[in-house]
Design a protein around this nucleic acid. Structure first.
Length: 422
DNA sequence: TCTGGGGTCCTAGGACCC
DNA sequence: TCTGGGGTCCTAGGACCC
């Protein structure tokens, strides 16, 4: 049994906590450079503004309805998120923080503490509102996918008063609600799959719930099979309390103005790498490959287009900001072409591994300490799941050398040629 | 003029190995 | 004409999520 607790219109709600005048008004929070709407109040949603809609395209609508647009403040949202999650953890021992504004709670075995889950949901809503000022809705069901749908029902239907426990509803009632919900509302059914499902006559949540998982697997694969099973109340997705370390770290931005010179790009890339490297060290990892990319403005069909990227292997895994910047700058130097109006640049840290392993790999196999190393590696294999790098030191050496000799063109870092980096 | 940023998983096919 | 069987690794592309 799962509960999904989700903050309503999270970024907008955060802003309203600190500026109550915004309550009841149409509000959007905008992305970097105030480009797109990344959060909308209910009033704005009612006006038909879509997620990701460019702000400049809403100018008339905004004027007409007095839409308030705010620049995003991710430090604030992160802080508010932490507070909400702390409250949830005070109710239930097993919590999966799924995103900045959502958590799954495991409810199994808690019936003696909370005899009525709907009451629990209302308690949580009340306390989160009282302690943080944020409105949340709660959905409860025997699988995560169903808990997501229950949460959706709680949000959209006032009769639930913000809390929907599917197990407390009659089958007929569930059928009634699910028959009215588009199949696109199901977690895991995106734009593409939705079109294909409708082709097959599967248009509502109820249709998909009644489908044969085995048959859908043949056409769509194992993920779809899992989704249908989850809809039928067979839990296939477990609660994941510990977040595994990231497998890649991205840092990129669009520019407010077009950028043309190498030096401007280099400064941006250095900045992005600085924050990426901080995240890398924050999870105690080192990185083997640095990917750097630049893009022109794809919306400007009248401009010459140029998208380029390069993956630079590091001679030694590292989390040292200066070395990472040097590698990124090297790559940037290779792909930079004058004469283009650049709109976006970024770096991706790839082939991450725990920093501890790099140290221990220095041991030779006959070294008595290598037994300890193997223990560590086993533990890491458990922690990282299958398909990990850590199959033993010789395995790592082998895989890396194989990778760098692969057909894909790779580039060696020539440190002597690097431009000076501040 | 102005159009976000950061992630994961699955699959198919080719290379390669024994 | 007949042309093994089983496996891993890697990559690119497609799909999804918030």
């Amino acid at each position: 049994m799962f509960a999904l607790v989700d903050v309503n219109n999270f970024y907008v709600s955060c802003e309203r906590v600190f500026d109550p005048k915004l309550v009841g008004r149409p509000v959007v929070v905008l992305s970097n450079n105030d480009g797109c709407a990344v959060a909308r109040s209910n009033e704005v949603k009612a006006l038909g503004v879509k997620m990701g809609a460019p702000w400049f395209q809403m100018a008339d609508l905004a004027k007409k309805h007095g839409i308030v647009a705010l620049s995003s403040n991710y430090t604030l949202y992160g802080d508010m998120s932490d507070r909400v999650m702390q409250i949830l953890k005070s109710y239930v021992p097993n919590v999966e923080v799924y995103s900045i504004d959502e958590s799954f709670l495991q409810l199994d075995g808690l019936t003696s503490v909370y005899p009525c889950f709907t009451d629990l949901g209302q308690q949580i809503r009340g306390r989160v509102l009282q302690w943080t000022g944020l409105p949340v809705c709660v959905g409860m069901a025997p699988s995560k996918t169903l808990a997501k749908l229950a949460n959706h029902l709680a949000k959209k239907n006032p009769e639930f008063d913000g809390v929907c426990d599917l197990t407390a509803m009659s089958l007929a009632d569930i059928d009634r609600y699910f028959s009215k919900l588009d199949v696109a509302e199901v977690w895991g059914i995106g734009r593409r799959l939705c079109v294909q499902l409708i082709d097959l006559g599967i248009e509502t949540v109820q249709d998909l719930r009644n489908a044969d998982p085995k048959r859908l697997r043949e056409r769509f694969g194992v993920v779809m099979e899992r989704t249908v099973n989850e809809l039928q109340g067979v839990s296939c997705l477990a609660l994941e309390e510990v977040t595994p370390p990231r497998k890649q770290i991205v840092s990129s931005r669009s520019f407010g103005q077009m950028v043309t010179t190498f030096n401007e790009l280099r400064e941006s890339v250095s900045t992005y790498m600085t924050s990426a490297a901080e995240k890398l060290r924050g999870q105690d990892s080192v990185c083997n490959l640095v990917h750097v990319f630049v893009e022109t403005n794809r919306f400007r069909e009248d401009h010459k287009q140029y998208n380029a990227s390069m993956t630079v292997p590091l001679t030694e895994a590292t989390n040292d900001t200066r070395r990472l910047i040097a590698a990124a700058t090297f790559g940037l130097k290779q792909i930079y072409r004058p004469g283009f109006q650049y709109k976006k640049a970024g770096v991706i840290l790839m082939e991450l591994q725990p920093a501890a392993v790099r140290q221990q790999l220095l041991f030779k196999e006959e070294d008595p300490r290598s037994a300890k190393l193997m223990q560590t590696l086993d533990a890491l294999n458990g922690q990282f799941g299958r398909n990990t790098l850590f199959m033993g030191s010789s395995g790592i050496q082998h895989r890396w050398s194989a990778k760098f000799e692969s057909k894909t063109p790779r580039y060696t870092t020539d440190w002597s040629e690097l431009p000076t980096v501040n």
